[in-house]
Each structure stands twice: as structure tokens, then as C-alpha cells.
Design a binder for these strands. Structure first.
Lengths: 245, 245
DNA sequence: GTTTGGGATTTTGCATACCAAAACCTGTAT
DNA sequence: ATACAGGTTTTGGTATGCAAAATCCCAAAC
């Protein structure tokens, strides 16, 4: 036989037409598309989990969630499975979904891995950032510093995430960015209680980091980010008594 | 109000009873459990993708897959979504699943990230491996060397995966292990064509690496793994002409 | 007063059927 | 060729049913 002979009905040659040819680098203004319901459900549940409406360990019954959200079981099931693959819930066979119980050990492991990935990302970013990118970095830095002086914890967490996300993007490695995205979203679950006390030092370190990136100093960026994320990890272990699960 | 007032029916306090008390450190011989169908479907499709029965770019129609596998659409949908989250297929809204088209750029990014994660894993492993662990490492090394002398490409890829997986496990960081698992499974898709030519050097490097781990020489293990994975990345770019997608 | 045992109940996992909206395909007229 | 119109396919979601498994509950036995 000349072909591997796919066992599926023939749907014609490989892909679809990829006719874009012209308009090479147009801003890719894709048409508005309503988010799939499973996506909406996913986000709704993730939000309910981070803000503790759904408590760690709680059993999530598909039918109840479906009714509460006003959808059928199917999108709920699909959302739950994605939530599992991203560490928000544990899916026990034939028992269903339970909100994941974050432990100190897991937090430490997450923060360690984050440190490794972010350090690599900073290194790449320093090698590739343009002057325009650096300008944007300073903008994000200012947002964070403002939130810091205004004692806006939620804004601080968001600004921190935005800054790190942008550096990640600058790395130019999409796989890395995706992985960091995964890890960081989970880290943020643990991060909130230390955002405030750590804030002052953290944003000074950001300042150093942006300088290094601006200079294209790869080694410095790498070291500063390593120290920065490692200190964040330390800070977690010395976090205020009040915030133990 | 004293409680956050969950909007869901009360299902009692957080978890289930955790009555184990005695049998403290029994080997946890959990009862055999038939794999959920979605899991079986996931594995079947992944296999069809890696062995190219389903070609990159091919449109996967739920109904066809369901009929071919003899199941309903539901488990197929769920499997497809997991396949997406792990990079095997692309799920385009309102169009369905298409087998992911691996590109050289993506391969490079994957191999880079793999390098970073595996390097960290080797460092941790060197700090924690017991004598018994080292013995197991040599066993795995022997399996690989045997496959190498017997020109068994498939066995070689499997042995390589097994060795790296064990080192990952030794790291003691479950989050790291999970991430490496994800990345490595995708890397293996690209890896097969270079397993043979790279084989000889690769297994010599493994030899050095195990020695370093055996000595508990953290820095050496780190450096050797960094060099090892970096060379694998290089090898991919110099791979034989025959294997371009 | 704990264990044990055996229904009754709940929940998952999957199948089946159905439907609207979106995307695709095709043939025809321009 | 291009554009259009109509028919077909496919997705995404709803609803429903059901068997197997797990849980819950309560009464009997030790």
C-alpha cells in the first residue's frame, strides 16, 4: 500500500485552504466570537474557587453546578475536566470533582518551578527586548508602584501578574509562556496573602530587573529574576499566621 | 453572616472521612479500577497521532471518531479537549479538532523548555538520590545501552523516556514532574528521528550524569544535564533530511 | 458503644436523540 | 474567474435515560 490508509472517512487533503497571502501583517482583527459555554463555565468556577466561595475539599456535584449556573451538565463536565488538568480540582473516578486542597508543600514546589521558568524567561527577554518593549515595562512598573502606595492589594496582585506576563511574552517562547501561564495562575492562589508585605522589596527588584533588560544584560537579568522569585518563595514560608489554610 | 454562604446545596463539612489510622505506611495497594472511557479514547487518539495514522492538519470529526472507536460522542469530545490542552490537537471554535501541525520553531521551544526543567530536575535528584535509587538508575541505563547495541529505535526512545522520568521522580517535586511529563510527551513526537544518530553520545552522557548523581555532586549533575539536553536540541536541528514534516 | 451489614439513595459515566447556529460545499449565474 | 444562493455537514449545547459505583443511613449484632 502506498498510503498509511487512515481508518477514518476521507475528508480530503490535510488542512483547509490557508488563503491569506496578502494583508501579511495586518493587526489580525479577528471577528468577534461568543465564548464557548464551557469556557464561560470554566472561568466562573475558577473565580468561585479562588475567592473561596467553593472551599477546598468541597465536593462539586455536576447537577448542582449546572443548575446554579443555568446550563446543562455537559459544559460543566468539560469545564471540570479542564479545571482538573490545571490543578484547581481533583477528579476522582466515579466520585466526581473536589476542590483541590492546596498544601504548603505544593506551594513550595510551584514557587520553585515558577522560579526556574521565570528566570529563563527573564534571560530570553533581556536578549530580545526592544526600546518600545522597555517603555511598556516602565508603564507596567508604574501601575504596580501606584497600587503599592495606595495599599490596593488586589491591584497589586494584578499588576504583578501583568508585569511578569509581559516579560514572559518578551521571551518569544510560546511554549514557555504557556507553561508559565499555567503555573502563575496557580501561584496567584497562594500569593495574595504575601503580596502586601512583600510588595515594597518586590517592586524595587522589578526596578533593577527592568534596568538589566533595558541594558540587554542577559546575565544580570537572569540573576535578578532568580533572586526575586526565590525571595518570593521565602516570603511565602514566613507569611503571616493569619493565612494558613 | 458568619459564613461565606456557598450558593450550592450544603454537602456537609469539607472532605470525606479520612479514617485510616492503622496500617500507617502500607504500600497503598489501591483496588484495580477500570479506566474511564474518556481516558481510553484519549490514549487511543494520542497513539494514532504519534504514529501518523492521523496526519497533522487532518480534521477530526467527532462522529467519525466515535463510530471508529465504538463509543458515543461524549467521551470523544472530552478526550479531544484534553488532547488540546496538551498540544496534540487544535480546537477551533465551531469547527472542531485538527491534528496539531508541529513546526520547527515549536520543537525548538519545547526542547529549550525541556532543557531548563530537566536541568533543574537533575540538580534536585543529585541532592536526594539514595543508594537504592542509584542502583535503579544503572538498571535503566543498561536497558538503554542494550537497545542501542541492538538497534532497537522504539526501545531506545522508551528507555530514554524511562530514565528521564525516573530522574524527574527523584527530584521529589511533583509539580515539576507533572510539567516535565507534559513537555516530554510532546518532545517524543519530534524525538524519534534523532534517537538513533544521537543515541551513542546520549547514553555516554547518561553515564556521566548517573555518576554525578551517585556522588551527590549537585553542580556536576546540573551542568551535565544542561549540556545533554542542549545537545539533543542541537541534534534536532541537524536531523536527517528525510524527517521533515 | 462501637462495629457490621444491607438496602435506599445519590452521583457519575456514558449513550442516545434532537436542535439551532455556524461553517462548509456546490452549482449556477454573472 | 466572482459572487451568490441554497443545501449539507459539523459543532455545541440541551434533555433524558440508565447501569454501575459510591455513599448514606439505620438497624441488628457483638
Amino acid at each position: 500500500m502506498s498510503q498509511p490508509a487512515s481508518p477514518l472517512p476521507d475528508r480530503g487533503p490535510t488542512g483547509r485552504r490557508s488563503a491569506k497571502g496578502a494583508l501579511g501583517s495586518a493587526p489580525a482583527k479577528r471577528v468577534e466570537r461568543p465564548a464557548p459555554l464551557r469556557q464561560v463555565v470554566y472561568e466562573a468556577l475558577a473565580e468561585l474557587i479562588v475567592n473561596r466561595t467553593l472551599e477546598p475539599g468541597q465536593h462539586l456535584v455536576e447537577a448542582d453546578l449546572a443548575e446554579y449556573l443555568g446550563v446543562s451538565r455537559q459544559p460543566v463536565r468539560e469545564a471540570l475536566q479542564r479545571l482538573q488538568s490545571e490543578g484547581w480540582v481533583d477528579l476522582r473516578p466515579a466520585q466526581g470533582a473536589f476542590v483541590h486542597q492546596p498544601t504548603d508543600e505544593e506551594a513550595d514546589q510551584l514557587l520553585s518551578v515558577r522560579s526556574v521558568l521565570e528566570t529563563y524567561s527573564a534571560k530570553l527577554a533581556a536578549a530580545r527586548a526592544t526600546r518600545e518593549d522597555v517603555r511598556r515595562l516602565w508603564e507596567l512598573q508604574n501601575v504596580g508602584v501606584t497600587a503599592l502606595t495606595e495599599d490596593d492589594t488586589e491591584g497589586l496582585v494584578a499588576a504583578n501578574a501583568a508585569l511578569h506576563a509581559f516579560i514572559t511574552e518578551l521571551s518569544g517562547n510560546a511554549v514557555l509562556a504557556e507553561l508559565i501561564g499555567l503555573v502563575d495562575r496557580r501561584v496567584r492562589w497562594y500569593y495574595t496573602p504575601i503580596a502586601r508585605p512583600r510588595g515594597h522589596d518586590a517592586w524595587n527588584e522589578h526596578d533593577e530587573l527592568i534596568h538589566a533588560i533595558s541594558d540587554g544584560d542577559v546575565d544580570a537579568a537572569e540573576q535578578i529574576m532568580a533572586k526575586h522569585t526565590e525571595r518570593t518563595r521565602q516570603a511565602y514560608h514566613e507569611r503571616p499566621e493569619a493565612s494558613r489554610s
